[in-house]
Design a protein around this nucleic acid. Structure first.
Length: 862
RNA sequence: GCCCGAGUGGCGGAAUGGCAGACGCACGGGACUUAAAAUCCUGGGGCCGCCGCGGCCGUGCGGGUUCGAGUCCCGCCUCGGGCACCA
């Protein structure tokens, strides 16, 4: 037969062109219709698409196409996160111009995205490296600055020696750079920060709003990252000078057990002690040496679990305000300056770290929480006692259960004026400065007279020069560009210098989903009606690697912008799906392992539809997917099997058409196609003459519509939706093989209904195939503008069902019964079974459990 | 160490507490063909037996709840992920 296969090489590009010419995926705000915002995390244009991209974008495309057919006004945009290191590295290594490099990669990836048949509204594409985008990134920075949410401070910050730039805490993973895996060190620098900690509580509390919509895993990771910790701040006093040294503790109930105090080597009190003259020179020298050593250690070396605790006595003592105890003040590697107050009260009896430290340096141990057995003795302890108990050796608190003591001790400190209840967070302010040239310049000018001056909004954008020197030598390329650096002060018109750092690219990606709602606005970042109509994103899909990076930053941005009145939502992404990785042979694809699968090759060999189908079928979306060459072969075969099924049904379809009156008002009807309504009507009239086979196929068709609709609507069970389509296809083939010519009329109608609904349902997965077949059926309009098929509950219901008869939970017989049968009837039928009677003969029936439509379980004894 | 998630045929995977293994891949058999490919049909968890019938075992391991457990509960094992001196 001439039409054995779907000629994807010819058909896919043809339909892509037609869709583009007809602009069928363009959307506009339309308050009269329900909206649906489907979004994939936009790609970094690193060169070509990989299978992870294909999976990500296919998931979102299927969702978008399904919702569109369901009548939603669907926003499904795409763009490129196109500032960042890889472009700059290409410039450094190959002398490429990062703008040109980026543009070329974008062109290539755009081409590939189009080949895959995604239903993007390309008119809304955003490119973060373009002036018309980063102008608004800078504008947002200025809004943050005005509100005091962007500020500059000198602090010890994370430095990646390989990337030659600083990093935010979120971008350091286990002491290593998230991008290049180099060990990160600390450096004292003056840098710009976003005050994300001001939103710590709300970012934490609002995770509750995302329950059910976001994976637990991601919410838990953000919860831990924010790391809210309730406790007390207590002022200890440096005996020699009277200086207050505040400590933070979550265990105020153990405060009578303090036997020494430890501060971070960088703690300011250490500097004060060293220059006070209160301690001998040789001790000062030792402290200095210790500080130096700590400073040059990487985060990993200093904080790794197996790193031994190390410390040094300062030579001075502090006073515990609760009992006036005088204890030694130490510095140690295990106390971190950037958590709490950088100072810790050490209670070795009840804190494992303090315990180890005390043992190593021979410091005293004092039990203040007694275990329920009352057997705890300091000299016999081999580890800290951290379980609940009763407070002892604790002055007025003796006898108090320690869990109650926590609040009581804190309250007492507050009364006495040497402490208070407080909360600390693990979350740090977001360091956004980058010493890199391929990013959005921070719109700030430094004037000798006026100090730090924001660039006026009317002067935005602060343009990135196109002649930067990307030799990789001597710091930021912007700092070396005299023409960029030297400027005039916007306030006094005197000579001034520009800020030469650019913004973290995560700033660019923290608001792109807002820009999509009004992507071409030259006057504003976005128009209010548009953002209010489209936001929030109804379904966001991307990799879990952004659990506390992009996703936390974007939540923060949304809250800040809401407080500024620029958006109305509290959360940007109502639902989040974190898709699994695409593996090959059980391992992550990588060039070095040589196990990569190129989407290009796969599309060339099997077509976009087969690729899309396989990747959606092979595993549930949140699970890792092992790429299988045999698997895509199977998907390819199914595409052709489906194609043949419909093509071979065309004569039946035309016959069905000829049986029904043409509706002159409907161009599709005139053109030879049948509308869903026409088929339904025709079948309603033909109902009395339907054979059992006809009814059985109709039942399968309608049950499949029901099932696939459920799979796609909320569950995102794409793999089972596709298996439903396969089963339907198998059923249609089986039906066709059984047909005899005498029932041609009704059978043609049944067939027409079956294939038409099947084509509609495969449309989200295989848009080209569906479009080709839809037009072959005679429909003049795109299948992607059609409505999702409906099902008739009555038709979908089975006439008879097979039930199982169990005896003591074991299947003993099966029988065919009418579908609507009652529990009592089922029980009677089951008891009547010969097999059952034989098996229960002479035994006592204890209980019978009938489950309507499913089974009957007969419990017998003896 | 702590916190998540996952363990089901040869493989990917399916199963609101109710027939375990849907669907697909790979494999076997058949049809078509001079032949092959493609296609269509068909078989199949394991073990046992009086194999066109029937029995037993079976969802990582051990217990429990239930008429009934892949699914719920308790305790383990293995793998994957996250956090990790956070006071």
């Amino acid at each position: 037969m001439a039409e054995e296969r779907f000629d994807f090489r010819e058909a896919e590009p043809r339909w892509q062109r037609r869709w583009e010419e007809a602009d069928i995926y363009r959307v506009e705000r339309d308050p009269s219709r329900p909206k649906y915002y489907a979004l994939a995390m936009f790609p970094y244009p690193s060169g070509k698409l990989h299978m992870g991209h294909v999976r990500n974008y296919t998931i979102v495309d299927v969702i978008a196409r399904y919702r569109r057919m369901k009548g939603y006004n669907v926003l499904h945009p795409i763009g490129f996160d196109s500032f960042g290191m890889p472009a700059e590295n290409a410039a450094i290594q190959h002398g490429a111009n990062p703008a040109v490099w980026t543009r070329e990669n974008i062109a290539e990836m755009t081409e590939q995205l189009k080949q895959l048949g995604y239903s993007y509204d390309w008119s809304r594409a955003v490119y973060t490296y373009r002036e018309d985008y980063y102008k608004w990134t800078q504008w947002l920075f200025l809004q943050f600055y005005k509100k005091g949410l962007a500020y500059k401070k000198t602090a010890p910050v994370n430095w990646c020696p390989s990337c030659q730039t600083v990093l935010a805490n979120e971008q350091v993973e286990g002491g290593r750079c998230w991008r290049c895996d180099s060990e990160v060190t600390k450096k004292d620098l003056s840098q710009w920060f976003f005050r994300i900690t001001q939103y710590a509580d709300e970012l934490l509390d609002d995770l509750k709003l995302l329950e059910g919509g976001w994976p637990d895993q991601v919410r838990v990771m953000q919860d831990h990252w924010i790391g809210r910790s309730e406790g007390a701040k207590v002022d200890f006093t440096l005996e020699a000078t009277g200086d207050k040294i505040p400590i933070f503790t979550t265990r105020p109930d153990t405060i009578y057990g303090v036997t020494f105090m430890v501060v971070a080597p960088e703690h300011p009190i250490v500097e004060k002690i060293c220059t006070s003259g209160l301690i001998p020179e040789d001790r000062v020298a030792a402290i200095r040496a210790f500080q130096e050593k700590m400073k040059h250690l990487t985060e990993i070396a200093r904080t790794a679990e197996d790193t031994e605790k190390e410390g040094l006595y300062t030579g001075l003592d502090v006073i515990n305000p609760f009992n006036g105890d005088k204890v030694q003040l130490w510095i140690a590697n295990y106390v971190l300056m950037d958590y709490g107050t950088g100072a810790v009260m050490a209670v070795p009896a009840h804190d494992q770290r303090d315990f180890e430290f005390a043992k190593k340096y021979g410091l005293p141990i004092k039990v203040v929480i007694q275990n329920p057995e009352g057997t705890l003795k300091a000299e016999e302890m081999t580890e800290a006692y951290v379980d609940p108990g009763v407070m002892v050796n604790s002055g007025p608190f003796d006898g108090t259960p320690n869990l109650e003591g926590i609040a009581k001790v804190a309250a007492y400190a507050e009364e006495q004026g040497f402490g208070e209840k407080t909360v600390t967070y693990r979350l740090r302010d977001w360091l956004i400065s980058r010493q890199r040239g391929w990013g959005a310049p921070i719109p700030i000018v430094y004037c000798e007279k006026c100090d730090t001056v924001p660039v006026p909004e009317s002067e935005l954008p602060v343009r990135l020069p196109d002649d930067l020197d990307f030799s990789g030598q001597g710091g930021s390329p912007l700092a070396r560009h005299e023409g960029f650096v030297n400027t005039v002060c916007p306030q006094c018109a005197g000579p001034a210098r520009r800020e030469t750092d650019t913004m973290d690219t995560f700033v660019c990606s923290s608001w792109y989903y807002l820009r999509y709602t009004d992507a071409n606005n030259a006057e504003k970042a976005w128009n209010q009606e548009d953002v209010d109509y489209w936001m929030p994103v109804d379904q966001y899909v991307g990799g879990v690697e952004h659990a506390v990076l992009h996703l936390l930053y974007s939540r923060f941005f949304t809250k800040v912008l809401r407080d500024m009145g620029l958006v109305k939502v509290d959360e940007p992404f109502a639902r989040l799906l974190t898709q699994g990785m695409v593996l090959k042979d059980g391992a992550k694809m990588s060039k070095s392992k040589g196990n990569t699968v190129s989407p290009e090759e796969m599309i060339a060999r099997y077509g976009a539809d087969a690729c899309r189908l396989f990747i959606m079928f092979a595993a549930p979306p949140e699970r890792d997917l092992d790429w299988s060459d045999a698997g895509i072969e199977g998907a390819y075969r199914f595409v052709n099997r489906f194609y043949r099924m419909v093509v071979q049904a065309l004569p039946a379809y035309r016959h069905a058409r000829s049986l029904l009156p043409v509706n002159p008002a409907d161009p599709a009807s005139v053109a030879g196609a049948l509308s869903e309504a026409e088929i339904a009507e025709g079948l309603a009239k033909a109902a009395p003459s339907l054979t059992a086979d006809d009814r059985a196929l109709r039942r399968t068709v309608h049950a499949t519509v029901k099932r696939i609709t459920a799979d796609l609507h909320e569950r995102f069970a794409f793999n089972t939706a596709i298996s439903g389509l396969m089963e339907l296809t198998n059923a249609i083939y089986a039906y066709r093989d059984k047909q005899k010519s005498e029932d041609a009329n009704t059978s043609a109608l049944v067939m027409a209904e079956a294939v038409q609904k099947a084509v509609l349902m495969i449309a989200p997965f295989c848009p080209h195939l569906a479009e080709e077949l839809w037009s072959r059926l005679g429909h003049p309009r795109s299948v992607h503008l059609e409505s999702w098929p409906v099902y008739d509950e009555e038709v979908a219901r089975a006439e008879t069902v097979e039930i199982v008869v169990q005896i003591n939970g074991r299947v003993r017989d099966r029988m065919e019964v009418p579908a609507g049968i009652s529990a009592a009837e089922m029980e009677a039928v089951a008891r009547a079974s010969e097999k059952v009677q034989a098996l229960i003969a002479g035994k006592q029936v204890v209980k019978v459990i009938p489950v309507p439509g499913k089974l009957v379980n007969i419990v017998v004894k003896g």
